[in-house]
Design a binder for these strands. Structure first.
Length: 288
DNA sequence: ATCATTTGACCGTT
DNA sequence: AACGGTCAAATGAT
């Protein structure tokens, strides 16, 4: 874990240093002979460095840690995550599995999850997780309903833009579509593209994905990852059971371009689960 | 002891 | 009857 922290810190310093260098270069471009293309390129690089740096810091912030370079975190005010660092207290996850089914015509079973606060706060959000038949590295996560629990009303979120930038570090695809007469969100996660790849990918972990991934309309904490984005106006209109007109144009699709996994500033953080036996579920056992 | 997961049973829909 | 979704007792983990 210490190595991860150091690595994380190094990444941040590297990014900021690079950014500074780009700014200096850009400064030198301010002569009448400099090409606008070169300036644009430098600007892009600067923005990229800043984005990456912010991603690191933002992750730390919304992960509830006081030390920006501390990997283990607590969101105690939400009563949702307990410190897993030194003491081995049980983590309270946001999702609880309540079933698993083999689905006709698919190669992998479908797992059913509901919000942990279903009974205590009548939160009816559920999600389904199923490994894709087309690409065994992809997990299809379908979200139904919105969270109404306290955690969902927390104000610990970062901005939409920052969150989206964070998501850019993952290779994922988010669709909003209709299943039956319900609108749901479908999130396809390519597990190999997950930023904790360098540390954790060998022990591919379905349970991890199932428990950690949030749709951006569900602003709640997650285990080791925070994909939640603040809901847009459009998302606000999206409610369970609310039947809206559906057409191809009605379907919203975000495709985030993959970025380097190894260089991702997120990488350092994904180690949270490494020492967590609850996350060490053999994926082959789970999905075959 | 408490909380989470597993898994067969059950139920509603088609 | 078959299927997908949920329940709940048994089991496992902390």
């Amino acid at each position: 874990m210490e190595k991860v922290k150091d690595w994380d810190k190094k990444t941040l310093i590297t990014e900021l240093t690079q950014g500074k260098e780009f700014v200096n270069k850009l400064k030198n471009q301010f002569d009448p002979l400099a090409s606008p293309e070169k300036c644009d390129l430098l600007l892009e690089k600067i923005l990229s460095s800043l984005d990456k740096s912010l991603s690191i810091l933002n992750w730390k912030v919304f992960n509830g840690t006081k030390d920006p370079f501390s990997c283990c975190s607590t969101i105690s005010d939400l009563g949702s995550l307990r410190d897993q660092g030194q003491n081995k207290k049980r983590k309270i996850l946001h999702w609880r599995k309540y079933g698993q089914k083999d689905i006709l015509g698919t190669n992998h079973p479908r797992a059913y999850y509901r919000c942990t606060h279903r009974n205590t706060q009548s939160c009816l959000a559920t999600k389904l997780v199923q490994k894709s038949d087309e690409d065994p590295l992809v997990f299809e996560v379908t979200y139904k309903g919105r969270h109404s629990c306290k955690a969902s009303q927390s104000s610990i979120f970062i901005s939409y833009e920052d969150q989206k930038a964070n998501c850019n570090k993952n290779q994922c695809q988010l669709k909003k579509q209709k299943v039956g007469n319900q609108k749901v969100e479908k999130l396809n996660i390519k597990e190999k593209a997950f930023p904790f790849t360098p540390l954790k990918c060998e022990s591919q972990n379905a349970q991890f994905f199932a428990n950690s991934i949030e749709p951006f309309t569900s602003p709640i904490e997650s285990e080791s990852m925070y994909l939640s984005l603040l809901p847009t106006q459009e998302e606000e209109e999206f409610e369970m059971g609310k039947i809206l007109q559906s057409s191809e144009s009605d379907r919203i699709e975000f495709i985030w371009t993959p970025t380097s996994v190894i260089n991702s500033p997120f990488c350092a953080d994904w180690d949270l689960s490494v020492d967590d036996p609850s996350l060490m579920v053999d994926i082959s056992e789970y999905f075959t």
